[in-house]
Design a protein around this nucleic acid. Structure first.
Length: 832
RNA sequence: GCGAGAGUGGCGAAACUGGCAGACGCGCUGGACUUAGGAUCCAGUGGGGUAACCCUUGCGGGUUCGAGUCCCGCCUCUCGCACCA
């Protein structure tokens, strides 16, 4: 049996068929080049969305959510008369692809193009205004040639260097693991306990830019939450570096009063510590060094050597993750003593893994009286605890049953000449005093570490460096770029601790570019975050192969006008992109120090109140929904379910409301009255709606913009009313950013030849939007008791009179008015 | 622990600088049109009460003519960071 089709000419009007409409406009856009941006166009507007990692599962609804939100913003800017560039590409390098390829037994060079093709198909369906002529694929040699060029730029400027660093190492898989691959100290794949290994790695000196990266956060137009996250990550802290002289066993033996068994050492060792509380120096009762601290070797006394070595070995073995999770304090005494520069007393030197080598100087002065960690440690190992700060209700002798850490209200005690000084002042005074005595200086440190860009992996851009026995480290000359990633069939990491590229002879052996003698290539590839740290600079200059980014185009199109993306990239990606852009700015290659004029973080989509995940089996497949409802409905629904910057709850049940709205819109245009005049009240509502939607879109309040259009739709069709064409035509323009296909179709049905996106935004007329009469809310004693219809510019006296004339209100006016609050245009409150 | 954000009907959510709490949508109820309705259209829909009215924005205080919104103190949830000296 076949489904009967309505015969043509039947009185049943033709309804909205999204499948047909969307296919038609996809084709029409391609044919007309509607989405191709003229880079010389007036008022350039660069709308950037975070490019996706093209996974084998296909487009995630979260991607679609982000892209739709960007697309609406971009389309709106176009309707406002900007020339909008809205590019999109693929972030396809990295450990994700590599692991997935390993698992599936497919080579990434085969897998990625397949995934990209599938993504492209899904993205095309979504109706994004993307100019695909300016796409990038980070795995394309034409792109990573320039990623390597970026590396060399940093190298050239002294911002790339090599040093030893610890990595997570799985002794069973014989490979380097990222922190997120370590679960409870074990390898996520095989469960073997993870160890540390020290490898030579490439780093970028992002710490040199810490201050600028921090200061610019004050003025860039970014989501506050993102700026805060970056501030915390940069972690500026002001304090002092203090010098502690370690006792020399020879000269200090007598005075020490302890058994010193170490051999004579030459010269004296100094330990520098960083502290934010120099004011507590009189309470520093011991020192703690990180187990890896280079001075440990020298300080350790003979009788402590075995214990110290054992402890260092244990710390070394522990993986990087669990070392930071394990909070139980451990440590070992080195046998050495240092002199507290304030008190002149001898204090023991310990090592403990709660002190991190990577922060400050890798050594601390422990003030157990005023630091929780030190307190805990001192209690466990029986070290002295001294009070040197007293709170408002305390004095020098108040016992300490916990560390007193308040640094605002306390005053110094047991601190000789500083007794009684308030903590904030004491910080300055003590630092000045110690500086004078050559025992310290004030310094600012950052939590931020240098960026490790090396990966001992296969699936990434080879780092363009050559090692020559004669010439040393030689950068690959620009003319030799790209250093192509060879197609290595066995790209699995092995136990050598170096990347798989080291096994590829033809890649590895290379003549030195300087002297021509046999040399070796660097076999590490670079971090994917490097690929994405500059991609926005590339888009406008694609496909120019002569330069990474064309000077004139870059000057015109950068910085990015608006960037909208997930807050999961609040710190790393966005910080690295700012850093790279800043370096390029210093090199005179980009027009602004900051790459993204405006950044907004969108929220996350959950489903039926729960996070979407494969294991829960509640992942939304965009294809299925677009099949059933049409892309326009899915787009609009995604934007309707909650504030874009907060995310929303995807519920299958609710999507029909949005579809119904589009159905009604379609019917309204189809059936609109062309003769006669539009209704004045409806037109007033129309202008209010134009204003509302035009204000909501740039604020990313998409959900309320859609609600306003729905409300207008209700006005248009209330009581089976048939709208006039002048009432619906502007609505088509308002809807266009959200539901572009149907908007084009309706625009055509309204008799227009060109694209609705070239038609501009409907004119808003303030005069037409104003009501002349309105309902004034009347309160008596602050409680709403009714409303009266009055003129918009009603005076207070007239309003009171109108209220008194209303029986429902008058009965609450039990006495003379004691006070009258009149808010023109809003409300009247009579206090009796 | 620190940092950020959020708690509003049966559900997703609105509410601009303090000014009608619950727009819009889902669901639900009733009605219309229908052979039919899980289609479409119309109307209603926070709770209590016959009603006049009363109550209601996580909890407890406060400021104010008036508080979802501001202040103080709690509770819960989500997301970051996590021994950063």
């Amino acid at each position: 049996m076949t489904v009967p089709h309505p015969p043509s000419g039947s009185e049943e009007p033709v309804g909205y068929d999204p499948t047909a409409v969307e296919a038609k406009w996809r084709a029409r856009w391609a044919e007309r080049g509607t989405h191709a941006t003229d880079l010389n166009g007036a008022r350039p507007y660069y709308q950037l969305m975070m490019f996706p990692y093209p996974s084998a599962e296909g487009l995630h609804i979260g991607n679609l959510y982000a892209f739709t939100g960007n697309d609406i913003h971009g389309r709106f800017q176009r309707l406002q008369g900007h020339t909008v560039l809205e590019p999109l590409g693929y972030d396809a390098f990295g450990i994700h692809s590599e692991n997935f390829a390993l698992k599936m037994g497919v080579h990434p060079m085969e897998l990625i193009p397949r995934n990209v093709a599938n993504f492209r198909r899904q993205l095309d369906r979504a109706g994004l205004m993307v100019d695909w002529r300016r796409s990038v694929d980070t795995t394309d040699p034409a792109y990573y040639k320039w990623t390597q060029w970026v590396f060399l730029k940093l190298y050239e400027r002294g911002l790339a260097y090599k040093k030893q660093a610890a990595v997570n190492w799985c002794p069973s898989c014989k490979t380097v693991l990222a922190n997120e691959q370590v679960i409870n100290g074990a390898c996520e794949r095989c469960g073997t306990p993870v160890e540390q290994r020290a490898l030579e790695q490439w780093f970028f000196r992002i710490t040199e830019y810490a201050e600028r990266l921090l200061n610019n956060l004050d003025w860039i137009d970014w989501s506050e939450s993102t700026r805060t996250a970056q501030r915390n990550w940069l972690g500026r802290s002001e304090g002092a570096e203090l010098r502690f002289r370690v006792l020399d066993p020879l000269t200090d033996a007598g005075s020490a009063g302890v058994m010193v068994s170490q051999e004579i050492t030459s010269g004296s060792t100094v330990i520098n510590v960083f502290t934010t509380r120099p004011d507590t120096i009189f309470g520093a009762t011991y020192l703690v060094l990180a187990p890896e601290h280079p001075a440990v070797e020298r300080l350790t006394t003979g009788d402590q050597r075995a214990a110290v070595e054992a402890y260092r070995e244990q710390a070394r073995k522990q993986d990087l993750v669990s070392r930071q999770v394990n909070k139980e304090k451990t440590g070992v005494f080195t046998g050495a003593y240092a002199v507290n520069p304030a008190t002149g007393e001898m204090i023991p030197v310990w090592i403990a893994d709660y002190v991190l080598m990577g922060y400050g100087t890798g050594a601390i002065m422990a003030v157990p009286g005023h630091d929780e960690r030190d307190f805990e440690f001192a209690q466990k190992f029986g070290l002295p605890i001294v009070r040197v700060v007293a709170g408002p209700e305390q004095d020098a002798h108040t016992p300490l049953d916990a560390a007193y850490t308040d640094d605002a209200d306390g005053r110094l005690v047991n601190s000789e000449q500083f007794d009684g000084v308030a903590v904030p002042d004491a910080k300055r005074q003590v630092t000045a005093w110690l500086t004078e005595r050559g025992a310290g200086k004030s310094v600012t440190t950052y939590r931020l570490r240098d960026w490790c860009v090396s990966r001992q992996r296969y699936w990434g851009p080879p780092i363009p460096i050559i090692y020559c026995d004669a010439c040393g480290t030689v950068p690959v000359p620009e003319k030799d770029l790209p250093v192509r990633l060879p197609n290595v069939p066995d790209y699995k990491p092995d136990d050598s601790g170096v990347g798989p590229l080291a096994r590829h002879e033809a890649f590895y052996h290379v003549p030195c570019p300087t002297c021509g003698k046999p040399a070796r290539r660097e076999t590490d590839v670079s971090d994917t975050f490097l690929d994405s740290a500059w991609y926005f600079l590339r888009y406008p200059s694609v496909p120019n192969d002569a330069v990474p980014f064309d000077a004139a185009i870059t000057k015109q199109w950068l910085p990015v006008s608006a960037y909208i993306g997930g807050n999961e990239h609040a710190v790393l990606h966005l910080l690295y992109a700012r850093f790279i852009n800043m370096v390029m700015f210093d090199a005179g290659l980009v027009p602004s120090e900051e790459p993204f004029k405006k950044f907004r973080a969108h929220g996350m989509i959950i489903r039926d109140g729960a996070k979407m995940s494969k294991s829960r089996g509640n992942v939304v497949n965009p294809d299925a929904y677009m099949d059933q409802w049409g892309a326009d409905t899915v787009r609009t629904y995604l934007m309707f379910i909650g504030p874009f910057e907060e995310g929303g709850d995807f519920r299958d049940q609710s999507i029909s409301g949005v579809r119904r709205f589009l159905d009604r819109l379609f019917a309204s245009v189809r059936d609109a009255n062309r003769g006669g005049a539009p209704d004045a009240d409806v037109m007033r509502k129309l202008h209010q709606t134009i204003k509302k939607v035009g204000g909501d879109i740039p604020a990313l309040s998409y959900n309320t913009a859609i609600a306003a259009m729905m409300e207008y739709m209700n006005t248009l069709r209330r009581g089976e009313r048939v709208p006039h064409v002048a009432e619906v035509e502007p609505l088509v323009q308002l809807v266009a950013p959200f539901a572009p296909h149907i908007a084009e179709e309706l625009w055509e049905m309204l008799g227009h030849a060109g694209s609705v996106f070239d038609a501009g935004w409907p004119a808003f007329d303030e005069a037409l939007s104003r009501d002349d009469a309105f309902e004034l809310v009347v309160q008596v004693n602050g409680k709403t008791r009714g409303k009266v219809s009055v003129a918009r510019d009603v005076t207070q006296d007239a309003a009171v009179a109108a209220a008194q004339a209303d029986a429902g209100i008058a009965k609450f006016l039990t006495g003379p008015a004691k006070k009258v609050i009149f808010v023109p245009g809003r409300l009247l409150n009579i206090v009796v």
